[in-house]
Simulated scan of single mutants.
Amino acid sequence: MARALITWGGWEGHQPDVVARLFATWLEEAGMQVQVTDSLSCFDDPADLADLSLIVPVWTMSEIGKEQAENAAAAVASGVGLAGCHGGMCDAFRTNVTWQFMTGAQWVAHPGNDGVNYRVRMTSDHETVNGIGDFDVSSEQYYLHVDPAVKVHAVTDFPVVEGPHSPNGPVEMPVVFTKAWGNGRVYYNALGHQANVIDHGPAAELMRRGLLWAARK
């Protein structure tokens, strides 16, 4: 049976425990064996990591050990999938560049903070977004520094809220993207400030598909 590891922690405002349970439910419904932990010690054993089908980090900020990050990166490069959302994957472990290189982006701002009304637009026919129409969200709108190697499948438009970024003019910011890390598939979705943003409707379907797409087949 395919095995998934979900590890959660960090800033409590993102409800990492609730988001982790949501992801576990979707993966179990898809027939996967799921381990959920609130410790980063799960990254200590390279052999166990390499035996997984999927790693799902749900950590905002916090710190990861250098060897732990390298073990996770090696596992993904060997073919283990990596998937996550919002700050739980791309605002985790801000001081670890290996993590940022692997995940493909780093959060830097959310102008207007929570409760910004914005549209998510599909921009490809990739299987993670195909048939899901554009939709509106009221949440944090993530401004990311993004790896130019990623394949973008959904975007949002900046600026919605005025700020020092506004004089640069309109910017299409990735919301959903995929990339390769060695033999592994990496999926990221910028939605998910709290569980109620991604537990229903098209946002939920985007995230559910992304988790399953990334998992090693």
Rank of each mutant, 00 (worst) to 15 (best):
Q141S: 07
Y118V: 01
E127G: 12
V116C: 00
I132C: 07
G104S: 13
Y143N: 14
V150F: 10
R119V: 03
M122F: 05
T178E: 10
L191V: 05
V152C: 10
D199M: 01
K179I: 09
E127V: 13
N113Y: 15
V150H: 09
Y188K: 06
H165E: 12
A190V: 01
L144V: 04
P170G: 02
V129Y: 03
R121H: 07
I198E: 03
H193S: 03
P170A: 13
H145N: 15
V150N: 09
V137D: 06
V116Y: 00
G182S: 04
M173A: 03
H145M: 15
F135T: 08
Q194S: 08
H110R: 10
P174L: 09
K151I: 07
Q141N: 06
E172A: 14
V161K: 00
D125V: 12
T123A: 06
M173P: 01
P164F: 13
H165M: 14
N117Y: 08
Y188C: 11
D125F: 08
P111Y: 11
D114W: 10
G192T: 08
T128L: 10
G112Y: 03
P159K: 02
D147H: 12
V160K: 06
G131D: 10
A195I: 03
T128H: 05
S138G: 02
Y187I: 09
F135Q: 06
Y143M: 15
G131C: 06
E140V: 00
G169A: 05
H153N: 07
Q194N: 06
E140T: 01
R121G: 01
T156D: 04
Q194H: 05
P159E: 11
K151P: 00
P202W: 02
G112N: 09
V171M: 13
R119W: 06
V146M: 11
R121W: 01
G201N: 08
H126M: 08
A180D: 07
V161F: 00
Y118T: 00
G182Y: 03
I198K: 03
G104Q: 07
V186M: 08
N168F: 12
G104P: 09
V146D: 07
D147T: 11
H153R: 02
V137K: 06
G131H: 08
D147Q: 12
Y142I: 02
D157M: 15
H193L: 05
P159H: 10
F158D: 04
Y143L: 15
N113P: 04
G182K: 01
Q141I: 09
H126P: 09
G104C: 12
Q194Y: 00
D134T: 11
V160I: 14
V155P: 00
W107I: 12
G201E: 03
V152K: 09
V146H: 09
N113H: 15
V176F: 08
K179Y: 07
A109F: 14
A195C: 03
D147K: 11
L191P: 05
W181N: 01
D134N: 15
V116H: 00
G112C: 11
V176M: 06
Q141P: 03
D157P: 00
V160D: 01
A149L: 12
N117Q: 13
V108A: 13
E127P: 08
V116A: 00
